[in-house]
C-alpha cells in the first residue's frame, strides 16, 4: 500500500473548494489551512502562462519532518501517510523548519498540524475530503502499489512533476502538467 495524490494543473481553476472542504472536515480553525492554492504566472503581457496548483503535505517517502521530531509525535502510518500525534507534540517547530513545502502550521491549541490525507475517511473507503468535493475532478487519490488504480493509470499516461525534487524527499503528491 502506497497512498499518493495526483493534482491536475490543466483542469484546476483554483476555486479553493478543497481548502474549505478540508477546514469543515477536519475542524481546521479559521485563519489556518492544511491545503492551499498557488497561482504561478510566467511571461509578460500578452505572452503568458499560468499554472494553478492545490498544494498540501507531500507525504514524502523520505521524511525530514519525522527525522527532526524530538518526541516521535511526527510519524508515518500504513500507506506512507505522515501524521502528527497532537498529544505528543511539544510545539517546538523543528518539523516546520524541516519541511521544504511549508505544509505544517502551529495550531492555536499548541501543537503542529497538517494534512492527514484524511486517513479517517480513507480507512472507511472514502476519498479524502478535498478529492471528494473538487468540482473539476482535478484531484485523484489512491494506491500506487495497485497498477490498476486511477492514480497509477494517470501517472503512466500523463506527464507529471513533483515539487522541490532537489530536496530529496521523494514527495508523493504528483502534479499533472
Amino acid at each position: 500500500m502506497r497512498y499518493a495524490m495526483a493534482m491536475d494543473t490543466a483542469k484546476c481553476v483554483g476555486c479553493s473548494d478543497c481548502v474549505v472542504a478540508c477546514q469543515t472536515e477536519n475542524n481546521v480553525p479559521i485563519g489556518f489551512c492544511r491545503d492551499w492554492i498557488v497561482e504561478n504566472v510566467e511571461g509578460t503581457y500578452p505572452q503568458l502562462e499560468m499554472e494553478i496548483r492545490s498544494e498540501r503535505c507531500n507525504h514524502c517517502e523520505n521524511t525530514p519532518c519525522v527525522r527532526t521530531c524530538p518526541t516521535g509525535a511526527s510519524h508515518v502510518i500504513e500507506g506512507g501517510i505522515v501524521k502528527v500525534t497532537h498529544d505528543e507534540c511539544i510545539g517546538c517547530g523543528a518539523c516546520i523548519q524541516a519541511c521544504p513545502y511549508d505544509a505544517r502550521y502551529f495550531h492555536p491549541d499548541g501543537y503542529v498540524d497538517k494534512c492527514t490525507f484524511c486517513d479517517h475517511r480513507v480507512a472507511e473507503g472514502l476519498d479524502t475530503a478535498c478529492v471528494s468535493v473538487c468540482p473539476t475532478h482535478s484531484l485523484t487519490f489512491g494506491d500506487l502499489d495497485d497498477p490498476q488504480s486511477p492514480i497509477s493509470v494517470l501517472l503512466r499516461e500523463r506527464k507529471w512533476k513533483t515539487l522541490v525534487p532537489e530536496a530529496g524527499t521523494q514527495p508523493q503528491v504528483y502534479f499533472l502538467i
Partner: peptide, 17 residues
C-alpha cells in the same frame, strides 16, 4: 479563534476516525 463549526475540537485525531 472562530472555528469552522461549534463542535469541540478533538485533539487526538490520530487515535481514530
Amino acid at each position: 479563534y472562530l472555528f469552522a463549526d461549534n463542535s469541540m475540537l478533538k485533539k487526538n485525531e490520530s487515535k481514530g476516525p
